[in-house]
Write a protein that binds this DNA or RNA. Sequence first.
DNA 1: ATAAAAATTTAGGTTTGTCTAAAAATAAAT
DNA 2: ATTTATTTTTAGACAAACCTAAATTTTTAT
Lengths: 219, 219
Amino acid sequence: MKFTMAEENYIKAVYHLQHGQEVVSTNALSAELQTKPASVTDMLKKLKAKKIISYEPYRGVKLSAEGRKVALGIVRKHRLWEYFLVDKLQFGWDEVHEVAEELEHISSNKLIDKLDEFLGHPKFDPHGDPIPDSKGKIIAQPQEQLSGALLHTPVQITAVGSQSTELLELLKHKGLQMGTRLEVKKVFDFDGSLELRIKNQQVVTVSRELASVLFVKSL
Amino acid sequence: MKFTMAEENYIKAVYHLQHGQEVVSTNALSAELQTKPASVTDMLKKLKAKKIISYEPYRGVKLSAEGRKVALGIVRKHRLWEYFLVDKLQFGWDEVHEVAEELEHISSNKLIDKLDEFLGHPKFDPHGDPIPDSKGKIIAQPQEQLSGALLHTPVQITAVGSQSTELLELLKHKGLQMGTRLEVKKVFDFDGSLELRIKNQQVVTVSRELASVLFVKSL
DNA sequence: ATAAAAATTTAGGTTTGTCTAAAAATAAAT
DNA sequence: ATTTATTTTTAGACAAACCTAAATTTTTAT
Ligand SMILES: [Mn+2]
Ligand SMILES: [Mn+2]
Ligand SMILES: [Mn+2]
Ligand SMILES: [Mn+2]
């Protein structure tokens, strides 16, 4: 089945918001997509008619099996293009999201499979998020929050929980990026801020807000 | 100024049809874009209001200076993406047109300039058409038709006058492509067909129709 | 349990880009 | 110079995707 760009954006948004949550609300979608709740309701009816979601008025929405497959296809395109932009065209990891937001809607499957091959079948995008393979299989990530990491234990940044320019600007400033090794030196109970030592380098302080959107794995 | 995908497709179509012709007709545009003449008229009014074209009812249409600049930007994107698909992703030259038809509408200028650099600033696309540079400068091509070439004079194919799958399939079958060297051995007056010898290889026969959409330069 | 607040849907519009059918203008033929 | 044919425009509709304002349902607070 074919989908319009607007439909694809809604499907992907449901997919992202569904993580953790059982069902996704109209308001959550309207915030994510920067549209009004009334517009969301219109689109949900359309997607229900196409059997992409299950939806009962006032009860929230879930992807169907088919919908999940479609969503993973879009996520795959988005993340492969991001990888291309950073790895081949030398974009900064904080500059790629908006461009990929357009590129993910190019329809050719042949294109995306050839791109995947050209890039060497990467497993993670520049933000550390896993890239689904051509069959829709995706690596489930443990997603351990930095804010919950043990003291004095070496960890590595594996993902960031947002693509906002603001977040990425802050990370750049602090000298943090995908793959950065560090350990937590101290946690301050007053405001939840953390003091980190970056591998063989300086000590930086990060807020509770920042620590909660950084994901790490132990080394 | 920003343009919708539909507007960009109309602007590019006017640009292409304007070659040779002084003004472009409503019917020509409707044929090129596979829409009805009434739809074309609607869009022409909109593009006139945006000062992209000059247009008087029943009198045909021309690009303004601004419109030409916009058109060259779209053509640049289209041809750079075609080059990318063939050179980096190993697409056949007969498979790239439709995909580029979508990719040409990705809006980021930074993307297209980085892509240009990544590709090494190519001057011609896989069909032999010149690629405008970032300032909109485009190499004017002499466009000598094969059907008018001298006998027994070595020439090289520099461009094809159509992107249709049918044409490209025929060329592939005959063993003809961009850069192929050949000479005309004989012209048959009865049907205008030509006998060609491909450099150090076999002799092939091509119809008058085919010879008129193949462009060559003398060696 | 009721009232107030929040979330969601419905009703009625707008813009963009398309269409068909009919009218008007231009071009070609007699 | 008329008539006929072709091209183009106008008029009126429609689907997609959005909006605002009002009505409805659900949730939360009293
Ligand atoms: Mn998108
Ligand atoms: Mn990403
Ligand atoms: Mn196009
Ligand atoms: Mn081309």
